[in-house]
């Protein structure tokens, strides 16, 4: 599904990712943990194709194609989804309209017909209900005035409607109350199948208890410095990142 090889990314003049390797198979859930500023969001943005995140070396294969030569919107249409750490407010654009425009744009790019508007609304309402969000959010401007938790859940609504092949969740669990965290985890679990993969960036073990990742990675200073099973997350939760070898930290 995703194969990242020796990825180097510069933002401004600063090297942020410094030879990152990661492989995620179909249907797998990978967690990425790591200290603040280590480059986790940078990885998400680079994969999603944000301007200013310049890949200086390495390669990324997504579903067999060279991800790096695609525009951001082409990556979305190809099935890549990034749930933002800080979802962006879009004043004046109503949520339902935006979602439908996004879905139709992706479908058009894939040569599919536009969605039927009734089916669409039904699907969105279902997702809202599952995430215990009020229908009125559909009529409000995208993320505008949403609480922190509502913004995160709104990302999950979008993910569920857009049905990506690979979803990168950048700290979707941060700022969620305990119940909302469960809802989000359930939302992810509902989408899980043999094909669909997830990269879950998180600082906490709690979300992973619900998601049960196949692998846990530690990103530090622009590289994956440790990988393991879910027990790695538990160890990090207890010990922090102190046990990482000093050379890795300084590299």
């Amino acid at each position: 599904m995703l194969k990242i090889n020796n990825l180097h990314v510069q933002v401004g003049d600063k090297d942020i990712l410094k030879g990152l390797n990661l492989e995620v198979g179909p249907g797998e859930v990978h967690a990425i943990m790591g200290p603040n500023g280590s480059g986790k969001s940078t990885l998400g943005y680079s994969l999603a194709g944000r301007d200013g995140y310049e890949v200086t070396d390495g390669s990324v294969l997504f579903d067999g194609q060279n991800l790096l030569e695609l525009e951001a919107e082409e990556r979305a249409a190809a099935g890549l989804f990034l749930a933002f750490q800080y979802p962006v407010e879009i004043p004046g654009v109503n949520n339902a309209y935006f979602l439908r425009a996004a879905l139709n744009a992706q479908r058009k790019a894939r040569g599919e017909d536009e969605v039927d508007s009734i089916d669409f609304l039904r699907a969105v309402r279902e997702q809202l209900k599952a995430l215990q969000m009020d229908d009125s959010l559909l009529k409000r401007a995208v993320n505008e005035g949403f609480s922190g938790g509502e913004k995160k859940r709104n990302e999950m609504v979008q993910m569920a409607v857009l049905q990506p092949k690979l979803a990168i969740l950048d700290e979707t669990d941060s700022g969620l109350d305990i119940d909302a965290l469960k809802l989000v985890a359930e939302g992810v679990n509902r989408l899980r199948n043999d094909e669909r993969s997830f990269v879950v960036i998180t600082h906490y073990q709690r979300l992973l208890e619900h998601l049960v990742p196949d692998q846990v990675h530690v990103l530090s200073n622009g590289r994956i410095v440790e990988s393991g099973g879910r027990e790695l997350a538990e160890r990090l939760e207890q010990e922090g990142y102190g046990f990482l070898s000093p050379e890795e930290d300084a590299a």
């Binding site: 919107e73 990556r75 879905l103």
Partner: peptide, 10 residues
Amino acid sequence: FYLRSRGLND
């Protein structure tokens, strides 16, 4: 970028 990441072109 947020909009593009959801599939809208520039």
